[in-house]
């Protein structure tokens, strides 16, 4: 696409986002405001993640984009194609191991990440206290004071009502023992992957105009109680395509008589396992 700067954003915007990203990495888990720009797709489609990715990538990078673990859904395909068009020289891939920058909506890849990789999350609501305290001025103060009693009470009430800590996705985490952070709506199954990950994790919320970060090897603890420890949730079953018993599964309804099966949510992980099985046969 001619007429656009490399990676769509103008250089002044990139510099502003880059400065915010550096401060976000220096204060792990703290939400840094940034001047979110209008993007050629609506809020809710990953504008925050796209702006972070656009500020980070160069022509030497290899970009992977996933939506709920899949490389081949509308959101992932259109974002990958967008960057292929506005960032000449940029390579794209569906293989987790080959990517240097991975933009994700609501999943962390099953294949363990390594040093040198950057994981960019699309975040709809960066404020973990949002449902408990709607005033932004107040939540900012609570973060400044590290006063997270509200969230502990919410978890306690979950246990009192449901017998367990209740969120199956977007389960809040403490970063580096200081800031309460929303992991974005990833399944709680993925929360442990954030803890001391060798990769750099960046988070962008376009509509809410906030970004934040978790540096590599940083402590990310899912909030819980000593007598009710955090338990990541996963459907009981195996993937019908590759047989994996340890991956995060999507439930697929196959007919109108109650037929259903489970498949891996991570298409790259599942595809590679199938290819390996075929090669072995």
């Amino acid at each position: 696409m001619s007429g656009y700067n490399f990676a769509y954003l103008d250089e002044a915007t990139k510099r502003m986002i880059r400065r915010a990203l550096l401060k976000a990495v220096a204060v792990p888990g703290h939400q840094v405001p940034f001047g979110s720009r209008e993007m050629p797709l609506p809020y809710g489609w990953g504008t925050g993640g796209i702006q972070v990715t656009a500020s980070v990538i160069g022509a030497e990078d290899t970009l992977k984009v996933i939506d709920q673990g899949a490389d081949d859904t509308t959101n992932a395909v259109s974002i990958r194609r967008f960057f292929a068009r506005v960032a000449p020289g940029l390579a794209t891939t569906e293989r987790t191991a080959e990517a240097t920058v991975i933009q994700t909506r609501h999943r962390i890849p099953e294949t363990p990440l390594r040093e040198g990789q950057v994981l960019v999350y699309q975040v709809p609501q960066p404020e973990p206290l949002f449902r408990l305290e709607p005033r932004r001025s107040e939540t900012r103060r609570l973060h400044a004071l590290a006063d997270y009693g509200l969230m502990q009470v919410k978890l306690y009430e979950d246990i009192a009502r449901h017998g367990r800590v209740g969120s199956s996705y977007d389960h809040p985490v403490m970063v580096n023992g200081r800031y309460l952070m929303s992991p974005s709506p990833i399944p709680s199954f993925d929360n442990p992957k954030m803890h001391r990950s060798p990769a750099l994790q960046l988070f962008g919320a376009g509509r809410e105009r906030r970004l934040y970060a978790v540096p590599p090897y940083t402590e990310v603890r899912s909030l819980d109680f000593e007598d009710h420890p955090f338990v990541p949730l996963r459907a009981r079953g195996r993937c019908s395509l590759c047989g994996a018993g340890d991956s995060y599964l999507d439930e697929v309804v196959t007919d109108d008589r109650g037929g259903r099966l489970f498949v891996c949510s991570d298409t790259d992980f599942c595809g590679e396992r199938q290819a390996m099985r075929e090669a072995a046969e």
């Binding site: 700067n5 490399f6 250089e11 990139k14 510099r15 880059r18 990203l21 550096l22 990495v25 220096a26 500020s55 980070v56 990538i57 160069g58 022509a59 040093e115 750099l200 540096p215 590599p216």
Partner: peptide, 19 residues
């Protein structure tokens, strides 16, 4: 090359701050 060189310098700083 202002665009590519600034990106390359930023990535080095980002990597340095992250590690």
């Amino acid at each position: 090359d202002p665009v590519a060189d600034a990106q390359s310098a930023f990535r080095a700083v980002l990597e340095a701050v992250a590690r």
